[in-house]
């Protein structure tokens, strides 16, 4: 359940993909390493969308594969590569909805207008609400930023905030090899760095 409406904080407003456009440009030049980077960056978000909509693992796998196949096909036609995150989320949402509605096979609307019409046909009560997508997108942004932190900060933030069970300061201290009393100020410093990266 999203709390986005409660506190009116959104991380997405100014979060245009900092280097997404550069990665897409490299992909367009045929650099497989750039494509691998794009896959690594977005695989979790793309997989999360059908799963959070309640699809089975097998259906989620189909959606995941179709999104990447469509991305390869349309890589040269995406008009705003810096907004590829939005394109990916919209495509994953559309393909998830197609599975829910029972459409079989790989189908991609030929035009943006057709895609928009398809998306407009999704009822408000569908499993993929805008709030849920915002939550997933924000979590993706935060994880991307965490991955850009230096190794020690990445470890501290991940252990305290991104594990199923939050690690204690003692556990974090033992892991990174500092005294337990150092963890609180280190944590604060790392969170500031993270906030700066998120923008």
């Amino acid at each position: 359940m999203s709390d986005n409406n409660d506190d009116k904080i959104s991380l997405l407003d100014d979060a245009v993909g900092r280097d997404d456009a550069a990665i897409v440009a490299r992909c367009r030049r045929g650099e497989h390493a750039a494509w691998d980077e794009l896959v690594d960056r977005y695989q979790r978000l793309i997989y999360a969308i059908p799963r959070r909509a309640g699809l089975t693992d097998e259906q989620a796998a189909d959606v995941f594969q179709e999104v990447f196949v469509t991305l390869v096909e349309k890589l040269d036609k995406i008009e705003q590569p810096e907004r590829i995150r939005s394109w990916i989320v919209t495509t994953a949402k559309f393909k998830t909805w197609a599975v829910i509605r029972g459409r079989k096979g790989h189908y991609s609307p030929a035009t943006d207008e057709e895609l928009e019409n398809e998306l407009n046909s999704i009822p408000d009560a569908a499993p993929l609400s805008d709030d849920l997508l915002i939550e997933l997108e924000e979590q993706h942004l935060i994880r991307t930023a965490v991955n850009e932190l230096d190794e020690r900060c990445r470890e501290i933030v991940s252990m305290i905030y991104l594990q199923d069970t939050a690690a204690s300061y003692a556990e974090v201290a033992a892991q990174i090899g500092v005294g337990e009393t150092s963890i609180s100020p280190l944590r604060s410093r790392c969170l500031k760095k993270l906030q700066k990266l998120i923008g």
């Binding site: 695989q43 979790r44 939550e135 991104l162 998120i198």
Partner: peptide, 22 residues
């Protein structure tokens, strides 16, 4: 807000064979 988002993030990596496919 960022902390809350991290604490509620229960996403998982896609299975390895799917990443290989991608």
């Amino acid at each position: 807000h960022v902390i809350k988002r991290m604490q509620t993030d229960n996403s998982v990596d896609a299975p390895a064979d799917l990443i290989k496919f991608a």
